[in-house]
Design a protein around this nucleic acid. Structure first.
Lengths: 330, 330
DNA sequence: CAGACGTTGGAAAACGCTTTCCGGGAGGTT
DNA sequence: AACCTCCCGGAAAGCGTTTTCCAACGTCTG
């Protein structure tokens, strides 16, 4: 293990000088000594010990990213956006997946705090359980008191800078668009009720229908994934249009309808939410609400890194996109 | 910033005792002192400083993961597998995406070396450029000399433990299965030639056709993603069956054929490779070669963590799955 | 030419933890 | 009762950096 001291000795300079040459400092070092140090470092194959550096500097070059599920393209897209800005700033990314367990989220924040990461990004819907939120918040406050920075993609419930997709509005506009096609009888393939994002989408959709004087939709709950969409869709009947609260559930629904011999969109229209890139080529192509996922990741990390941070809310609105999976009625 | 010393003072014990209580040690500590320390730590809200711990211990609890592209479900699936084992061992994961740039891969290994991560996992096809491979290898050797452990998912070109999907065999078996359906005129939607995985798939497929005495396939190159598949597919004609070297390219091809009014599988059969989970619900469902992606991630990290490591090769074979996108001829 | 100033190099004190030694007391054995 | 062991607590020496002083040496300026 080659240390900075080895390099300094080999170059015939002091530790201080070697440090200044190799690990960026404001101080100048004379050209000849600088060259000697660089040569010695190259010859010895010196690699900075980041742990020592972090300890001495009191600040690391790592950011923490906590997502629900990396195999869900929704999170992968957001994470990718965040990672691009991290990369551009020379930061490494430490990542954790909670698999939607709020306890794991809290545990990760604690671990990332111990790692003294520069910033933590919490990506994914908050939960309705106030106790979990409180505990997470306590942990975050603790982290922030010691200089950590935090941002969130989801809902602003933690008192930190947050990028919030306007789920209610997006769902409401989707409802209006769908009603505009002539649909009157809706079912919603809802996610679990303890996750706020899917719940907001259900409420926004329902509220818009009510405003339009349309009958209340039938709400069918399922898990927030493809299987949940499939399961919920098996119970659908007597309806002309189905809103799945995200695209992957919509995919499940399409599969279920196919298996049941129900044609989309001839027999029933289906819409999703998120506009997952990998799913753009579905047949029939999926009507949905587009969210700028990568941008949300970018924006969130920018917020987290911005020293002016507090508890700002940056709302991003979705764009309704009608494709083949929904069709007009008469 | 609460330090261990603060805790020790508050508890009225020595630094050593506090350390032993809070950060797992082989040494026993008496019940009463232990309780005092735990109480003090809780009261003060102590969080271990991992950088200091890493420095003192000379070993970190982080592993590094280098993938080409996280938004590609292929990598997301493998990463997820690896992350599950990391989690089960109490390890954090530091992740980097190269976007298929071999230089970035080398840079990441260097950075991860500086971080003194416990192990590095390189996920993704190696490149044909021997110079890049050599430089990466040098960097890896350097890392391993200082005690780092390495594993790779791809091809065993780096002298490290490697999980290698048998791309040639998988492609060959796919070719035989497709020929068994009666196809004789093939096109291959190939990836870039400088990536070994897609190249091997092309070669395996071609070799199998030759063995069967069938005409050589037409090879069309495109980028290793959806767009590449689309672009290559626009040039296809006079062929009954198309093999896209991975599923996302196949999706692009399906889209291209749809846009051109060519029906799949009636007019042309299409097969992919990988069996991406998110794509299971395509219509028509995609014939492909299934790779146990998550398992590959699990296995690779296990290899990396296994102290007996060297340059072992663990081959995983794909399983041909014929679905609706390919049909029998006559 | 003396004094002020700016620049560059080095010594040494942190940074927060782990772990090796050492010592003292309790318990067991002869 | 003397001797050995264990067991547990503490002192202190690292771990590899950064950074604050301090000293020495030009270079200007009046």
């Amino acid at each position: 293990m080659v240390t900075l001291e080895d390099v300094a000795r080999q170059a015939g300079v002091s530790l201080a000088t070697a440090s200044r040459v190799l690990n960026g400092s404001t101080r100048q070092v004379g050209a000849s000594l600088r060259a000697k140090v660089e040569l010695a470092a190259a010859e010895l194959g010196y690699r900075t010990n980041v742990a020592a550096q972090t300890l001495a500097r009191g600040a690391s070059n790592v950011i923490g990213l906590v997502v629900h599920d990396l195999t869900d393209p929704y999170f992968a897209a957001i994470a990718d956006g965040a990672m691009r800005v991290a990369e551009s700033q020379g930061l490494m990314v430490m990542i954790g997946t909670t698999h939607r367990d709020p306890q794991r989220e809290i545990a990760y924040v604690s671990t990332l705090n111990a790692q003294r990461v520069r910033a933590v990004l919490l990506v994914g819907s908050r939960v309705t359980d106030p106790e979990m939120t409180r505990r997470l918040r306590t942990e975050l406050d603790h982290y922030r008191e010691s200089g950590g920075r935090v941002a969130c993609v989801g809902q602003n419930l933690l008192g930190v800078d947050t990028v919030v997709p306007d789920n209610r509005l997006g769902a409401a506009e989707l409802a209006r668009a769908l009603a505009g096609l002539g649909h009157r009888n809706f079912a919603i393939l809802a996610g679990p009720d303890w996750l706020i994002a899917p719940r907001d989408r259900v409420e926004g959709f329902g509220a818009a229908l009510e405003e339009l004087g349309l009958p209340a939709p039938r709400v069918l709950h399922g898990s927030f994934d493809r299987e949940g969409g499939y399961a919920a869709a098996t119970q659908v009947s007597g309806i002309t249009c189905v809103f799945a609260v995200n695209d992957v559930m919509a995919v499940g629904a399409l599969a279920a309808f196919r298996d049941r011999g129900i044609r989309v969109p001839e027999d029933v229209s289906v819409a999703g939410f998120d506009d997952i890139f990998t799913l753009r080529d579905l047949v029939p192509s999926l009507s949905t609400v587009r969210l700028p996922l990568a941008d949300m990741g970018v924006r969130a990390l920018e917020l987290a890194l911005d020293p002016a941070g507090g508890s700002r809310t940056e709302t991003v609105t979705g764009e309704v996109i009608l494709r083949e999976s929904t069709r007009g009625l008469g």
